[in-house]
Nucleic acid binder design. Structure first.
Length: 474
RNA sequence: GUCCCCAUCGUCUAGCCUGGUCCAGGACGACGGCCUUUCACGCCGUUAACAGGGGUUCAAAUCCCCUUGGGGACGCCA
């Protein structure tokens, strides 16, 4: 049997800003589509608009895709370097009569649109130069000579059968008056040239698809499969915007989200596979074709992302989290004086993993572990509430018990610490509640913390005792 | 203005194609409870939806039409 053509997908951002959440999702879906069928995923940078494109944006997009682990095959294609290719194809269209020169000025075309609008018709170029048989000249553009009747139809992978009356389309410009090719032309030439078999892109491109199909037909090329994924909305159901705080993928990194959490969240936004919520990358690749791509816009819900992030934090190894944390400590309060020894940090992580929803929170919770005792910040209210005369006396009485325990032995086992404490309390007929909060404040400076004895273990004998003693002096 | 698309709990969605098994399932959130040395985790439970109106049919969340609401596109931007 003849092997089916292997799938080739691509992500084609324009470098006019960072990679936003919607773009990331289309990139992910395209990547998944390719990988799930053993195909190839390509990256193309659509920088034909030299005014708005920047190298910084290109780098930022590539960096964000790397963070999400969406690797593209080979090196990226840059449209700005392929103008000769596009122009030779435009010439070919001119020769075959599928395109023509037009001398109408932007103002004239705008007037045509106004007129059409006033008549309640679709605003479009009226085609007055179609048969003028003009040649090149200053200020002239090249337009496609599109069909004026009939329909252009295609099977959209997510929306189903889609068709547009050709009369709705106007003769779009292929080459600008400055000689530069336009978007739709470049896209078609590139997708064909790169061997793209499947185009998955944002909803905002549906209207371009028939125009591009017309170009494929004019060139006599095979038309790829198209799919248009719905947009992502903000909490107010309006288009996601800056007001919602979070559109750049890398901002999510800054906010302390793990890439696999974002990927999992994005995958489930507009796609579902039964009732499953948690997907490893491997499962995503395997299950993507089996799931449903939704066809209605979805609202970005940060709460659910948080939940997934908490899940993946719990799944992570302490070592990985320990390696990630210094960056967040530095961003919030700095790292001077902190003990950032990797294995020490790693020993803290298991206490924080069940508690933190983001790495930012985690850094905040980790701080008291890392600061030297004499710099530990005690919460004033906590001290006032929990370290009264009685409590201090109790801690002072408890001190010898903890001093008697061996560092590295008993202090490596929180159960031993707990047992010793319980024995001390039993001898005095006290409840555990009597010491819990005072001890916690003494050790951590706060009223909320991980388990007391686990905390003491991580701190170690020297540090733990020093903190209790310091608390007695406050 | 013109064309196109969409519509299930607050949110993400399953179900819709191939009507009955759905007084609509899961998840996040919210609320309540349990656990408990604090904070979390975890566990248990509650809340809450087929946009509205007409059809078709013995039977409609599922099929058709209209209305309403939302979105997108109409560039010498991408």
């Amino acid at each position: 049997m003849t092997p089916a053509q292997t799938i080739v997908t691509r992500f084609a951002p324009s470098p006019t800003g960072y990679l936003h959440i919607g773009g990331a999702r289309t990139a992910l879906f395209s990547w998944l589509l390719a990988k799930s069928e053993g195909g190839t995923f390509l990256l193309r940078v659509e920088d034909t608009d030299r005014e708005r494109s920047t190298n910084e944006a290109t780098d930022a997009i590539i960096q964000a895709m790397a963070w999400l682990d969406l690797a593209a095959e080979g090196t990226a294609v840059f449209q700005s370097q392929r103008f000769d290719l596009y122009n030779s194809h435009i010439d070919r269209l001119l020769e075959t009569g599928h395109a023509y020169w037009c001398q109408c000025t932007p103002d004239e075309v705008e007037a045509m649109r106004e007129k059409a609008r006033a008549e309640g018709k679709k605003p479009k170029y009226d085609g007055r130069c179609r048969e003028a048989k003009l040649g090149p000249g200053p200020g002239r553009v090249v337009r496609i000579k599109g069909p004026q009747d009939g329909v252009t139809a295609f099977q959209d992978m997510v929306k189903g059968p889609t068709a547009v009356q050709n009369s709705e389309l106007d003769d779009m410009i292929l080459r600008r008056s400055d000689g530069a090719p336009t978007y739709n032309l470049a896209v078609v030439v590139d997708d064909h040239d790169m061997g793209v078999t499947t185009v998955l892109r944002g909803d905002d491109h549906v209207a371009n698809t028939p125009k591009q199909i017309l170009l494929y037909q004019a060139f006599g090329w095979d038309v790829p499969k198209f799919g248009h994924v719905p947009m992502i909305l903000g909490p107010d159901k309006a288009k996601l915007s800056k007001r919602h705080g979070a559109l750049s993928v890398m901002e999510y990194k800054t906010m302390g989200y793990l890439p696999e959490a974002l990927v999992n969240y994005l995958a489930r936004l507009g796609w579902a596979c039964g009732d499953q919520e948690i997907f490893s990358r491997e499962e995503l690749v395997k299950l993507f074709p089996a799931g449903n791509l939704g066809n209605s816009p979805s609202v970005f819900d940060i709460k659910k992302l948080e939940w997934l992030n908490a899940h993946y934090i719990k799944q992570s190894t302490p070592e990985r989290l320990a390696a990630l944390l210094p960056e967040y400590l530095a961003a919030a309060g700095g790292t001077t004086g902190l003990n950032l020894d990797p294995s020490y940090l790693a020993s803290i992580m298991p206490l924080l993993q069940p508690r933190a929803k983001t790495l930012v929170e985690m850094a905040d919770m980790a701080r008291f572990f890392l600061v030297p005792t004499d710099q530990l910040a005690y919460d004033a209210k906590a001290v006032a509430d929990q370290l009264g005369p009685e409590a201090r006396q109790l801690l002072a009485d408890l001190l010898p018990t903890y001093e008697a325990l061996s560092d590295g032995g008993d202090y490596a086992d929180h159960k031993a610490l707990e047992a010793a404490t319980q024995a001390f309390l039993d001898a005095r007929g006290l409840k555990f509640k009597a010491v819990a909060q005072p001890l916690r404040v003494a050790l951590t400076g706060k009223t909320a913390s991980p388990g007391l004895f686990e905390t003491m273990c991580v701190l170690g004998k020297t540090e733990a005792l020093a903190r209790i003693k310091r608390a007695l002096t406050l």
